[in-house]
């Protein structure tokens, strides 16, 4: 009954990037189960332990902020605690998350090694310009050279996770322009000037 709308709900306002975990696998042993409390606010670490080391956490924070720096509309990813979400994601006990954990661990190891090779310091201690240069290296045109396959895949995955973590926060939703989730007395539909701008005035009446 819901599947009809689920595809729609998942598609609304979003693109082709899909972080869903396939649903038909058996329940994870240490997940939140099929009847969690969905009313209270949950924080990363509430249901399963976080697994990033301190050094990895520093690298993820630095990486997130290259991916989403602060600007005049919103703060940086780390200021909105996106690294906590990434740690929660890769630490989750469900099928699919384990592959992300492997990818992120390997990617972070590559990143630090490459940073030390190029600049003599870990990624988290590199300068802003050096971090940017390393991120550019991880974002080559497709297909990447074989030595960049892992870093490219890792970077795309962390970029997507950073976007999810960021744009689901109140500040991120505001930045994106989501203005719903408030009760209204009436649903007014699109503003008249928007309808006119798209030439849809004749479509409003049924």
């Amino acid at each position: 009954m819901l599947a009809a709308s689920a595809g729609v709900a998942l598609a609304r306002g979003m693109g082709q990037i899909d972080l869903r975990v396939p649903g038909s696998a058996p329940s994870a042993r240490d997940g939140y189960g099929t009847d969690p409390d969905i009313i209270r606010t949950h924080a990363p670490g509430d249901f399963w332990p976080l697994t990033l080391t301190r050094a990895e956490r520093r690298a993820v924070s630095a990486l997130c902020d290259v991916i989403i720096p602060a600007d005049d509309r919103s703060p940086s990813a780390s200021a909105l605690h996106v690294p906590d979400f990434i740690d929660e994601w890769i630490s989750a006990p469900y099928a699919g998350h384990g592959a992300d954990r492997t990818l992120v661990n390997a990617g972070l190891a590559w990143l630090d090694a490459e940073s030390r090779r190029r600049y003599g310091s870990a990624f988290a201690r590199a300068t802003d310009a050096q971090r940017l240069e390393l991120c550019e290296a991880m974002a080559p045109e497709a297909p990447p050279k074989s030595e960049l396959e892992l870093p490219s895949k890792f970077f795309r995955r962390v970029r997507n996770l950073t976007m999810v973590g960021f744009f689901t926060t109140p500040a991120g939703m505001k930045d994106l322009g989501y203005v719903g989730n408030v009760p209204l007395a009436r649903f007014e539909g699109p503003p008249a000037d928007l309808i006119a701008r798209l030439g849809l005035a004749d479509e409003v009446a049924w």
Partner: peptide, 12 residues
């Protein structure tokens, strides 16, 4: 489905 729905676990 179209529109600016509440952002969720699919990246924009």
């Amino acid at each position: 489905g179209t529109g600016k729905g509440m952002p969720g676990a699919n990246a924009p």
